[in-house]
Design a protein around this nucleic acid. Structure first.
Lengths: 110, 110
DNA sequence: TTTATTTATCGTAATATTGCAATATTATAA
DNA sequence: TTATAATATTGCAATATTACGATAAATAAA
């Protein structure tokens, strides 16, 4: 079969996994790192930097845009992409809440 | 075609995306949250808690174990699973380094 | 040993993801 | 208008993921 219904899980669980899924491909991690590194917005040279074909990069950018982590600004024939600061911060809060759960396992099994 | 070769990306990018991929399914998020919540190790009642079939849960547990975030201890006929504290902490450091990149976009495009 | 219990594995179907060639779209320049 | 340039979309093939029934493996209890 396919995927479990999202109704099986809480909104927060679905949100966390949605963010994580976006980070779950090295190309998207590389795109985001590059967007951070150049300290400025970028458009098409991601194709050269990452080493994937233009439609593939465009598709990854679309997913990043869909979840709100980047935004694109049309500038002439090109599009300038950059991190969506507010949404990135919000995402960080959600993920950190999950990652920072207390570890209190005090049984003998572990 | 298939996936991009992992050699296209840095070890760190591949590591980040590997962790993220594991978190990229709500069932695994739910399993981990439950392991944290019960403050103790657990084995088979995850099937009841999550609501997926036993082979499916076993498969998700295997992925969590493979990447090192949980460990399982055989106790009689059941297996007691729990968070692997050291590895969880190490994973957190890796992910946080990625999430906490500075946002310094000072151009007009965003 | 036989039986019951728990978990893991196998096999397979359904679905999702990834990558790219071809093409369309959009905007600028000539 | 006609090129040119940059990006997006479409269509499709290859692969990966997910889910579960059936079954195997391991252990404990009778």
């Amino acid at each position: 079969m396919g995927l479990a219904k999202s109704e099986m899980f809480t909104d927060k669980q679905n949100l966390i996994s949605s963010y994580a899924k976006v980070f779950g491909h090295p190309a998207r991690v590389a795109i985001l790192e590059h967007l951070f590194a150049i300290n400025s917005c970028i458009c098409g040279d991601l194709v050269d930097v990452i080493g994937l074909a233009q439609p593939t990069i465009s598709q990854h950018l679309k997913e990043l845009k869909n979840i709100g982590l980047i935004k694109g600004n049309v500038e002439g024939t090109s599009v300038c992409y950059c991190i969506h600061k507010e949404n990135w911060t919000a995402m960080k809060a959600t993920i950190n809440e999950f990652l920072n759960q207390d570890i209190n396992c005090n049984t003998d099994c572990c």
